[in-house]
């Protein structure tokens, strides 16, 4: 999988390494900005209220 990506990146080894780094950072950004905030409420850390009061569940 990663080998396939590496082979399809343009340029020499240095350029490929640089692009890989940028891609990795982009993935981390998307995860922290969008994916994790979505996934986090599915875990129980958010339940701090007693029910029935229009509460966050």
């Amino acid at each position: 999988m990663y080998g396939w990506i590496w082979r399809h990146l343009p340029g020499n080894a240095w350029a490929r390494a640089f692009i890989s780094l940028v891609l990795a950072l982009a993935v981390v950004y998307v995860l922290f900005q969008y994916v994790f905030p979505w996934a986090e409420p599915l875990l129980p850390f958010n339940d701090v209220t007693v029910d029935g009061a229009g509460a966050a569940r």
């Binding site: 409420p41 958010n46 701090v48 209220t49 009061a53 229009g54 509460a55 966050a56 569940r57």
Partner: peptide, 18 residues
């Protein structure tokens, strides 16, 4: 004001009904 999940991310939440 309020105890919605988004509100509780910014601080403590007051139960609006109280």
């Amino acid at each position: 004001e309020g105890t919605r999940a988004g509100t509780l991310k910014k601080g403590l939440g007051h139960y609006a009904s109280t």
